[in-house]
Design a protein around this nucleic acid. Structure first.
Lengths: 252, 252
DNA sequence: CGGGAAATTGATGACTTTCAAGGTGTGTGG
DNA sequence: CCACACACCTTGAAAGTCATCAATTTCCCG
């Protein structure tokens, strides 16, 4: 079990770990298409902390994958109120908020200095047009996006603040585990401000909940480092185990 | 301006009003494809009140359009907590929660006796495969879906309860207007219970807010009938940041 | 018309936000 | 390399919003 000494999001990942591989490698691209994709990917776009990868209403230039660093997707209303919809870690693919209109609907802002890959939109569209396998993988990505929004809605609508935080920590732990990192010890890529916004609560509330969970011994907090001491109890708090069995429950 | 005497969702709409037409008619289907689609659509599926059009984890049998009546899409977690994600009115197309996996992720339950059209999934996939125009329209539908979730997240995360309700009433008014119904007088298709769930608040809170808006003269409430007396003020309430001080703080 | 579900209303209290102050960490410039 | 400034985070106290519990009232369906 790896236990990163530094912020894991600062590790450069390579393509066989990057979830973009599912988008470009195995699923029905032939050698020619693959070579074509490889040559047209822009692999080293550097985004400075707090800079945008794209803004709402920008024309869509391409699909991006986070190679290192992290970012947030957010929606801002007429009054300037921001709601963060999603955080992005290395391996995440983003830009699908424009897939219907070719215009982005959200802002994506780097949380730290970040490296991204970019597939130019023409190439992306072209591959979608020509390859059923590519389309399928794109659909899976969009499906993930939708599913994420739905779970967040359930969280905001039904869970208490402490449960929402627990739910997110569990989610993050699973994410890191699936990428080969420690499930129980990792860094939060975002500020308290951003996390509290995402979870629909005040910063102070988040801070207090962290302190409370710390006191209970469920987690240990060291600035942005999270150490999960009792994953099961955290999961119980989160009311997680979300989908699969939910439909089976019959209350009559 | 029409001012329906009965619940508008009980009016049978025909295809030139149905939003499904954008999915099957003008956008790149040729005459053969169109004829093919028309013959394979199942036009008169009757769903009784409280019955499911489909459940989470059901295999996807097709894409549905509400012809008359109404429905709710909801997600249920392991503890049986339900979050309503969307309400569906005549003309709405649904079933895209399965488009990536061919398995539905949500429940869709009729709020009243409801008529739906159904495109069998094989036909749908086949048309998607063959027709770029059809794909495009499908993408627009999915884009709408995503956009809706994002706005609801913004609402749940940033707005106070009264603002959330105002926001939804404005949205509903605009929806009815765009379908040729009155913008200022319409019926709510759902119970208070369902609406309060959707808006992330207790039933009693919803009831009190309705009473308050009524008292202020912004709207008139007669059971499920809504009459909007001051649309502008309602809209201001919906878009104006209410956590009163949050907006002021921004001035800094 | 009667029974039960749905909706309203009131009282109370828990939870969360707001306001305020102090602490901690970080980055930059000297 | 240190010091200082600033942003970020935490903690406390007070206030407010919203949920819960409970009691009617209204509506709806058979």
């Amino acid at each position: 079990m790896k236990s990163p000494d530094k912020h894991p999001s600062q590790n450069i990942i390579n393509c066989n770990v990057c979830s973009l591989k599912h988008l470009c490698l195995p699923h029905g691209l032939n050698q020619n298409e693959l070579a074509e994709l490889e040559t047209s990917i822009d692999k080293t776009i550097k985004i400075k902390k707090k800079q945008a990868i794209y803004h709402a209403n920008d024309p869509c230039n391409g699909i991006y994958a986070i190679k290192s660093g992290s970012a947030k997707t957010s929606l801002v209303n007429a009054d300037g109120q921001e709601q963060i919809l999603e955080f992005h870690l290395p391996g995440d693919v983003l830009g699908f908020d424009a897939f219907a209109t070719h215009t982005h609907s959200c802002d994506v802002i780097a949380l730290e200095d970040t490296l991204v890959c970019r597939i130019p939109i023409e190439m992306f569209d072209s591959l979608c047009e020509r390859s059923a396998g590519f389309r399928k993988v794109m659909h899976q990505q969009i499906g993930k996006e939708i599913s994420h929004s739905q779970k967040l809605l359930l969280s905001l609508g039904q869970l208490a603040t402490e449960e929402r935080l627990a739910s997110y920590l569990v989610q993050l732990a699973n994410h890191y585990q699936s990428r080969g990192f420690s499930k129980t010890e990792f860094m939060l890529p975002m500020s308290r401000q951003d996390l509290s916004n995402y979870l629909g609560m005040a910063v102070e509330t988040l801070s207090r909940i962290l302190a409370r969970l710390n006191k209970k011994g469920l987690v240990k907090i060291e600035q942005r480092r999270i150490i999960i001491n009792d994953f099961d109890q955290l999961e119980a708090l989160a009311h997680t185990a979300v989908r699969e069995n939910a439909a089976k429950i019959q209350i009559t």
